[in-house]
Design a protein around this nucleic acid. Structure first.
Lengths: 118, 118
DNA sequence: ATTATACTTAACTTTCTAGTTAATTAACCG
DNA sequence: CGGTTAATTAACTAGAAAGTTAAGTATAAT
């Protein structure tokens, strides 16, 4: 039995699945819509499987409309990942500052690099 | 050949590896320090392998000090993941607001749930 | 009713992952 | 030197993941 976070991360660890999520971030799409960009690289059942992985991970929801299966992004799941990431945020922000300090010492006139606003 | 983001996510998709990262977020530790909590569940070579996965993914850096291998967190990598996640942030924040609105309609006296400050 | 469309399931193959034990390397200690 | 500690490498196994093709199901269209 896989823990929730592992399942989420491993669902995200595939470029096809991330591309599907990117497409769904633009709006609802059914299976063949989602599959279209990949059909030169893989079969339809392969895409079906990717969707199943995303669905089991809770990253998307698949509904029914006649013979179509409209899929939509399940945004809450992303928040869970983001919350896990938050624990490390201070570290990368700190390391950014350290780099910043370092850059100032070697090149004091150079424009200050600032961490991204969130 | 695995793309960078897939490699990062798949490194994160394991509870042992995430626990190692959590430990390293407290400070530098060498291999046997890191292994200790897991030695009841798995062998030392298993931990070595996990560390190799994390290192290849760029999430940690392993250095040398006599026979020890001090490891440290590589925080920049987390920023990359976070930046990918940012693309979806608006979605989960929006869905949170929708939930919020919904909760108000069914239970108007209940204290308002607020999205986490970042 | 039959044919087409949309999608899934089944069965199988190949490759990758996570673990194992045993042997090996490297540095330090007495 | 000889032993101990720290960690890695090698060789192997079991099981999961990602793909395939072929067959099946459900709805719609003619």
């Amino acid at each position: 039995m896989m823990d929730v976070l592992s399942q989420t991360f491993s669902a995200l660890a595939d470029p096809t699945r991330r591309a599907i999520l990117a497409r769904l971030s633009e709006g609802v799409a059914n299976v063949s819509d989602l599959a279209k960009p990949f059909l030169k690289d893989m079969s339809l059942p392969a895409v079906t499987k990717h969707l199943k992985v995303l669905e089991k991970a809770g990253l998307i929801t698949k509904t029914r409309d006649a013979q179509y299966r409209p899929c939509k992004l399940n945004a809450e799941k992303f928040r869970d990942v983001s919350e896990w990431m938050d624990h490390y945020r201070k570290h990368w922000e700190a390391s950014f500052d350290r780099l910043d300090e370092y850059l100032k010492t070697i090149h004091p006139t150079k424009k200050k690099k600032k961490p991204k606003k969130r």
